Simulated scan of single mutants.
Amino acid sequence: MSSPIPGVVAWAVIGYLAVGLSGWLWLVRGTDVDRFDNRMGRLVIHMGLWCIVALLMYRCASTPTIDDPANQLALGCVLMTTTYLYSIGRLISADSVPETVWRNQRNAGLVALAATASIVLTAAAVRYSGRTVDLRLARDGLGIGCAFAVPLTYNTFVFARGCLGAFRDIDTPRAARIVSFGMIGSIAIIWGAQALSLSQLTTGWPDGPPLSLVPAAFTLFVALGSTLLAVPLVAELMLRAGMDRATRTYRRLLPLWRDLTAAVPEIVMPVDTRYGSDPATRLLRMTVEIRDAMLHLGAYLPAESDATQRNTVRKPESNRAITDYAHRLIRAAQARKAGLPPAGTGAPPPLPMGAHDFDTELAHLIDLARIWPQAKAAVE
């Protein structure tokens, strides 16, 4: 084989990509994803398959020149890969209606097929005349170069623009922003290879067959892209293993929730089967139910001591204030479960500090849950 990429590296990248595609296939078919994610996943899977075919074609080439049909077909596979980048770029930048994504992909694929046919037919005509294809600024070489470079540049530009928009969007999750930034970097590899190829055509630098830059850059692009696309797979695996942030927080609040809802069982909401398994939805539901239970138990809270009131005014987030509140809340839950009448102290704030947003309230509940077992043992 005459590929500029060592066999051990090429086969390692092919295997790495194959494993990643298997994970994406499981992610699309085995998880509850919405239509947008399903389209995105299928585009990624199809693009990965074309990447594998392109890498295999490069392994089949007997010479590093465009005269080898394997290299010609490999260029076509690279172009087909970029058509999926084009569709993904339009999808994430909302340039097209999601329902038309496959129609747009089909149109881009036809352009890639036409460009591939132009490369193959031009090379065949030159070979039939007994010459070799000259990739310098000559008629045949210029035609082949434009047939490959123009659609590739346009498709990757649309994709990079979509990634840049997602990276700039403050609502984009951190993991998605990392992937977007990394994919822009991987596209820069392809653009750098194109710039070097143009330099070879015009100045002869760097030395070597001009076509050797393409498989090297493409292999590096596939390796980096496969690594970045593994981020959603890792996130899904963590979700399945219960290691995601929402599930960990849910487990920390579970003892607190059990004790409070046991005292006020009527506030427990029925589980929505459509969203009941989503960790973020379960955590939000638990937080609401804990807050409702606290409100119902407000009338059963024993009065605060003067010392605790002074401590709360000076340092409202102190452990002493939260501990004292936990003791009072446990006594209130015990009183309600025992059927005792309300303490008659009114309904003070459910926590000894205010919370103006969900994250702040959740942090306060986590603090309360942290000391809940010790407070429960002290009261009982």
Rank of each mutant, 00 (worst) to 15 (best):
Met243Tyr: 04
Met269Ser: 14
Thr203Asp: 03
Arg240Cys: 10
Val231Gly: 03
Leu211Asp: 00
Thr261Ile: 07
Val179Trp: 00
Ala263Gly: 12
Arg274Leu: 05
Val222Glu: 08
Ala195Trp: 03
Leu224Gly: 06
Thr247Trp: 12
Gly182Tyr: 03
Met183Asn: 10
Val271Cys: 09
Ile189Leu: 12
Pro232Ile: 07
Ile178Cys: 00
Arg251Asn: 10
Ala195Phe: 06
Thr219His: 11
Ala230Cys: 08
Arg248Tyr: 05
Asp244Met: 02
Leu198Asn: 07
Ser199Trp: 02
Leu237Arg: 14
Ala263Lys: 11
Gln200Val: 03
Ala175Asn: 03
Ser180Leu: 03
Leu233Val: 13
Thr203Tyr: 08
Phe181Trp: 09
Ser199Met: 13
Ala175Asp: 09
Trp257Ala: 12
Ala217Glu: 09
Arg274Phe: 00
Asp207Pro: 01
Leu211Lys: 01
Phe218Val: 11
Asp259Glu: 11
Ala217Cys: 06
Pro210Ile: 04
Arg174Ile: 13
Gln194Leu: 13
Pro206Met: 02
Pro232Arg: 05
Leu198Met: 12
Ala230Asn: 05
Arg174Asp: 10
Gly208Ser: 04
Leu201Asp: 01
Pro209Ser: 06
Ala230Arg: 06
Phe218Lys: 07
Ser180Gln: 10
Leu233Gly: 13
Thr227Ile: 08
Ala262Asn: 08
Ala195Asn: 00
Thr261Ser: 13
Ser186Pro: 01
Ile267Trp: 07
Leu256Trp: 02
Leu196Gln: 11
Thr203Val: 12
Gly182Ile: 09
Leu201Glu: 04
Ile189Asn: 07
Ser186Glu: 11
Met238Phe: 15
Leu201Asn: 01
Leu220Cys: 15
Ala241Leu: 14
Ser197Val: 09
Thr202Ser: 12
Leu196Asn: 01
Phe181Val: 09
Ser199Ile: 04
Gln194Met: 11
Arg248Gly: 13
Ser199Ala: 14
Pro215Tyr: 01
Leu220Glu: 11
Val179Gly: 00
Ser186Val: 05
Arg240Leu: 15
Thr219Tyr: 09
Ala246Lys: 06
Ala262Tyr: 02
Trp205Gln: 10
Ala241Ser: 08
Pro270Trp: 03
Gly225His: 02
Val271Phe: 05
Leu198Ile: 12
Leu220Asp: 09
Trp205Glu: 10
Ile184Leu: 11
Ala241Pro: 00
Ile190Met: 14
Arg177Tyr: 00
Ala262Gly: 08
